[in-house]
Write a protein that binds this DNA or RNA. Structure first.
Length: 201
DNA sequence: TGTCCGATTGGT
DNA sequence: CCAATCGGACAG
């Protein structure tokens, strides 16, 4: 029944991985308990060709070091001095790519999430990159954590193309031409997105 | 060493 | 609309 994704699943380009992660379930099995949610919103970042990526034009080392390693590890960084964002490293060794997880539909550990977030509504527990990190206790201590391990892992899942939309990424207006790349993927009808998807006519 | 600013969020 | 809050990136 429940199958955990193995290393090979993550060893592909970030664009492909971002799409394939929709419908999969991210699990955090930490000291305080277990939380999990279905991935409903992702964004691809490709360091070799993408001005919006932290690893763009960079050599291995520093904040993005883990991105240069093999796929299937956690890239977590501090944003605005306050929040943290969780990414899945994509691609093979030497390819600095990753997928930002932007929203989840909670499936397990909701009371734990409520306690960590100080919010009651399930729809708002994980509806943004910083929110889901807080809800799942993804602190920077998990930087470089193996996603094929026991504390952090992903369960296989899928969604049909008709349920998916691709849009420009959020908050990357500074990235010139890359700002318009349709590298954000969402499950359109999900009620757990960071931004509502406009009604189709 | 110093300054600038962000892959955000929550409260005015 | 705006403050919070800090480390990475880059200029000097």
């Amino acid at each position: 029944m429940e199958k955990r994704l193995d290393r090979s699943f993550f060893e592909i380009d970030a664009l492909t991985l971002a799409r394939k992660l929709l419908g999969c379930t991210l699990v955090h099995n930490g000291p305080d308990g277990k939380t999990a949610g279905v991935i409903v919103e992702t964004e691809a970042y490709r360091g070799q060709v993408d001005k919006a990526a932290h690893s763009y034009g960079k050599k291995p080392g520093g904040r993005t070091a883990v991105q240069f390693g093999p796929g299937g590890y956690a890239y977590i960084y501090l944003i605005y001095g306050i929040h943290e964002c969780f990414n899945v490293v994509a691609g093979a060794e030497g390819e600095p790519e990753c997928v930002l997880i932007r929203a989840l539909a909670p499936t397990e550990g909701v009371p734990l999430m409520v306690g960590r977030r100080h919010r009651e509504k399930v729809e708002e527990l994980c509806s943004g990159p910083g929110k889901l990190c807080k809800a799942m206790a993804s602190r920077r201590e998990l930087y470089g954590c193996d996603l094929c391990g026991e504390e952090l892992y992903v369960i296989e899942g899928a969604v049909a193309d008709e349920e998916v939309a691709a849009t420009p990424r959020i908050g990357v207006g500074y990235a010139e031409e890359a700002a318009l790349y349709p590298w954000r993927f969402i499950i359109k009808e999900s009620h757990f997105l960071s931004l509502p998807y406009p009604k189709e006519k």
